[in-house]
């Protein structure tokens, strides 16, 4: 009796349990992958700024606002004063612009919710990439079509290396593109 019960446990119950566990893990792993990598993260912002309107319809160059992308590690979020270059006259009556103007006049910084983030120990450099001719969209997606900006691609080390080792795949528009470095110090210091 005891023997047959153990037999049953090992032969039937154990494989079923393991199978269910593996299936559950696999499904959760793949289903949550995007979330783990942050892909699709589209938070609300303190001011409902539309990239679709500014970059898409009005065709304002990315670098009009993200001024330091060619000069530095950071693309940088524009200061409120950059917005006010136009909005001292443009669309002054809209509620979001009124909010902006109020913040600007009070001298308060706007706290934008961060969308793209690489860990602190990875020293990603915007200027290196942009100055090589890589377009913003290659990593950030078609921002000019987004009403609310979200993360479109994975920003993991694997994603970085995929592109460094096989740049043609994602950036077919670059002629004679060389492989990116894949030594540790290229990103970590």
């Amino acid at each position: 009796m005891t023997n047959s019960f153990i037999d049953y446990l090992i032969r039937v119950r154990l494989p079923i349990t393991i199978f269910v566990a593996i299936c559950a893990f696999a499904v959760t792993y793949f289903a949550s992958r995007a979330e783990r990598d942050g892909v699709g993260y589209t938070p609300d912002q303190p001011i409902a700024f539309s990239h679709k309107l500014h970059a898409g319809q009005l065709k304002i160059d990315c670098q009009y606002c993200h001024t330091t992308v060619e000069k530095s590690r950071f693309a940088s979020i524009p200061s409120a004063s950059t917005c006010m270059n136009c909005h001292v006259v443009a669309r002054k009556d809209r509620p979001e612009i009124i909010k902006l103007t109020k913040m600007y006049n009070e001298g308060k910084p706007i706290l934008w919710n961060r969308i793209h983030k690489v860990p602190d120990y990875a020293y990603f450099n915007h200027s290196k990439h942009v100055n090589k001719g890589i377009q913003c969209q290659s990593c950030h997606g078609n921002v000019e079509e987004m009403e609310k900006v979200g993360q479109m691609n994975s920003f993991t080390m694997g994603a970085c290396l995929d592109c460094h080792r096989n740049p043609e795949a994602r950036m077919p528009y670059l002629k004679n593109v060389k492989k990116g470095p894949d030594n540790c110090s290229a990103c970590h210091r």
Binding site: G38, Y41, P78, A80, K108, I110, L111
Partner: peptide, 13 residues
């Protein structure tokens, strides 16, 4: 999604 914090932009850079 994981919380990623805020970016504090200058008011007047």
């Amino acid at each position: 999604y994981r919380e990623k914090g805020e970016i504090v932009a200058y008011n007047k850079k």
